[in-house]
């Protein structure tokens, strides 16, 4: 079971394509850490009963700036031995203390990097960010080597029409920094509709990407770096670029993947919280957790979410497969 938990919508960067851009108004939310603590106990019991592996992945906003994160990470690791990962913009990784904590508590760390040098800084509203990120990741990789820590270092790239020409160059740079794995996803239009049209991937962009991936993948593999993205996943990207919808009949909701948002809605993916989300407070036993999948299916049958008619859930298409 992989549980993705968006614990906060606060972020310190200003990314024009993101719903949590610090410049945007509106109410920011954070999850109640007491609920995380309670639900983690359930997840642990669920894992034990099913003999399943569990990975809890912290998401934001910027989760490393959420104050209860480190106390919770420690608690969940000490008390339950839960494996954890985090997705971050990397803006706090320049601090040795944070890198130490990452190595101590996490099995995976995904850092978001979208372009080379100043372009990345402009995209993220982060002056000096490229150099800082480069130094931070190199230092993290080196500390990991010295400590023989099991941390997997991953970089994720949001692909756009603008940055695609430098994707290969970016992958090479990331490999040099010491990342183990590179993933990508296409710019979505849901978060910032005003940004999307001018920057979205076009069908010819996806075609070009398809063409260059095998060579790039081989080159990176020679450096020990895995470039992810299955054929099905690329197909999904092409469909999006061509404005074709991709309905999914049965995604096995709630079986191996859960998404929990900052207000405590538990759903089969990040796009269906409003339609299928079950409040955390309603899940108080392992049985209730086990019955989630059945409940989601029932809801799908009763009233299918619009999101399912054009599924954009990356995990369904094998984003992390090669």
């Amino acid at each position: 079971m992989i549980v993705l938990w968006r614990v906060t919508t606060h972020c310190n960067l200003a990314c024009g394509f993101c719903a949590y851009d610090r410049r945007l108004g509106g109410k920011r939310q954070q999850i109640d850490p007491a609920e995380v603590e309670r639900f983690a106990a359930l997840l642990d019991a669920y894992r034990r009963r099913r003999g399943d592996r569990l990975l809890l992945s912290w998401l934001g906003g910027e989760p490393l700036r959420w104050r209860p994160l480190w106390p919770l990470a420690h608690l969940l690791q000490e008390r339950y031995g839960i494996r954890q990962s985090v997705t971050t913009n990397g803006s706090s990784l320049h601090r040795a203390e944070v890198r130490e904590a990452v190595l101590r508590h996490f099995d995976e760390l995904t850092v978001s990097v979208d372009d080379m040098g100043e372009r990345h800084e402009q995209l993220r509203g982060w002056q000096g960010g490229w150099a800082r990120l480069s130094d931070s990741l190199r230092a993290l990789a080196e500390a990991r080597r010295q400590q023989a820590a099991p941390l997997k270092l991953r970089a994720n790239v949001v692909l756009m029409h603008d940055n695609l020409p430098r994707f290969a160059e970016l992958c090479e740079a990331l490999a040099e920094w010491g990342v183990d794995e590179i993933t990508f996803n296409a710019l979505g239009g849901q978060d910032r509709p005003e940004f999307y049209p001018a920057h979205r991937l076009l069908p010819e962009d996806v075609m070009r990407l398809r063409g260059q991936l095998p060579v790039l993948r081989e080159r990176l593999a020679a450096q020990g770096v895995r470039l992810c993205g299955s054929a099905a996943y690329l197909g999904r990207l092409a469909a999006s670029a061509g404005a074709q919808s991709s309905p999914v009949g049965d995604c096995a909701p709630g079986e191996g993947f859960l998404f929990i948002d900052e207000v405590g809605r538990v759903s089969p993916c990040s796009f269906t919280g409003a339609d299928y989300g079950v409040p955390l407070e309603a899940i108080r036993t392992v049985e209730a957790l086990e019955q989630l999948g059945e409940g989601y299916r029932a809801m799908q049958q009763r009233q299918r979410s619009a999101a399912c008619s054009d599924c954009r859930a990356n995990h369904v298409y094998g984003k992390f497969e090669a």
């Binding site: 104050r67 480190w70 420690h74 203390e97």
Partner: peptide
């Protein structure tokens, strides 16, 4: 120091606080 930065609570050998 803030409890969120306390090694006793975060389990960190050193504090994950701003340098």
């Amino acid at each position: 120091l803030h409890p969120s930065e306390d090694p006793g609570i975060t389990g960190a050998a050193r504090l994950p606080v701003e340098a």
